[in-house]
């Protein structure tokens, strides 16, 4: 096993690399453990228009790379590895990963969030074969085809609008009889000639075996069931925090978010929660980055006290 680190950061999204930047600049030996690549969810969008400092907007993947470079410039290190278990109760904390075991005196959890699944049979098997969670990512595959969008929030509306420009037909399926947010997208959607709405409706089955062929729907008012043939379905039904590894160790709220206030401190001293994983009002790149800075500040304070 390697000599230990001052701070181990699980997750290399905006929260993780912002924390790494602040920790490294405070002179702490800092390692980021990231399973795929810098940037996290923001790396999935090609145009970020609400991160300050980029008047023309910036590509999310590039923003992630720059965050990593900024932290590494001051000595933070990155290990591309998946965190598989954490032992957080002792002063020296142990993190198990696909690339070995690491120890650190403080841990910042910045594992972010993932799209929520519907939880129906075959969902996993058909993901990438007609079932998708991101119109900006996969919309191109459905040019000229018929797709369904499930959900009623602002993401569902934005995705349906984006898809309406690419696809032959878009069917928006929502449990209620109106969209949640009266957004700019809302009006544009109602006016789009190729967008159809199925209100008070849920998906109860994915049809097809190798590839999605359609959906089985249930009308929530009448109970009637019907089949809807389509080439793809985009599920925009919210996100779930990546906190499965922490269940039973740290306090989570009923939706699975790590309970931590604006100090980012969790229920265990020396363990901090930054970004989309934490209970908070607004989950965006800029608030994730802000959390990272705050977590680094309290980690430094904790380490000073622990000496």
């Amino acid at each position: 096993m390697e000599p230990h680190w001052d701070v181990l950061i699980a997750g290399g999204g905006p929260a993780g690399y912002s924390a790494a930047l602040y920790c490294a600049r405070a002179g702490l030996r800092t390692l980021v453990l990231e399973q795929l690549s810098a940037g996290g969810q923001i790396a999935l969008t090609t145009q970020v228009d609400n991160y300050p400092g980029f008047p023309e907007g910036i590509d999310g993947f590039e923003l992630g790379q720059r965050m990593r470079q900024g932290a590494e410039r001051f000595g933070a290190r990155t290990q591309l590895a998946e965190v598989t278990a954490l032992e957080l109760n002792r002063p020296l904390k142990t993190v198990h990963t696909s690339a070995g075991v690491f120890q650190g005196r403080a841990v910042i959890v910045a594992t972010g969030a993932n799209p929520r699944r519907l939880g129906l049979p075959k969902e996993q098997a058909l993901t990438g074969r007609g079932v998708s969670y991101c119109a900006a990512c996969d919309g191109m595959f459905y040019r000229g085809k018929t797709v369904a969008v499930v959900g009623g929030g602002s993401t569902a509306a934005a995705d349906a609008l984006l898809l309406s420009r690419l696809c032959k037909k878009v069917i928006l399926i929502h449990r209620r009889d109106t969209l949640r947010a009266a957004s700019i997208e809302h009006q544009a959607l109602l006016e789009a000639p190729n967008v159809e709405f199925r209100w008070n409706t849920t998906v109860i089955q994915f049809l097809g075996s190798d590839r999605l062929l359609g959906l089985r729907l249930r009308d929530l008012l009448s109970g009637a069931e019907a089949e809807l043939p389509c080439d793809g379905v985009f599920l925009c039904i919210g996100r779930v925090p990546a906190t499965a590894l922490l269940q039973g160790q740290l306090e989570l709220d009923s939706a699975g978010y790590l309970i931590a206030d604006e100090t980012t401190r969790t229920s265990i001293p020396g363990v901090f929660a930054a970004g989309d994983v934490r209970t908070k009002a607004l989950r965006q790149a800029v608030t994730a980055a802000a959390d990272g800075a705050v977590a680094a500040h309290y980690a430094e304070e904790y380490l000073r006290g622990a000496q």
Binding site: L36, S37, A43, L44, G60, F61, L80, C137, M140
Partner: peptide
């Protein structure tokens, strides 16, 4: 080039 998941995979693929 237009596939965003592909870009996220690239650093890992290089490793």
């Amino acid at each position: 080039p237009w596939c965003v998941h592909c870009r996220r995979l690239d650093p890992v693929f290089q490793e």
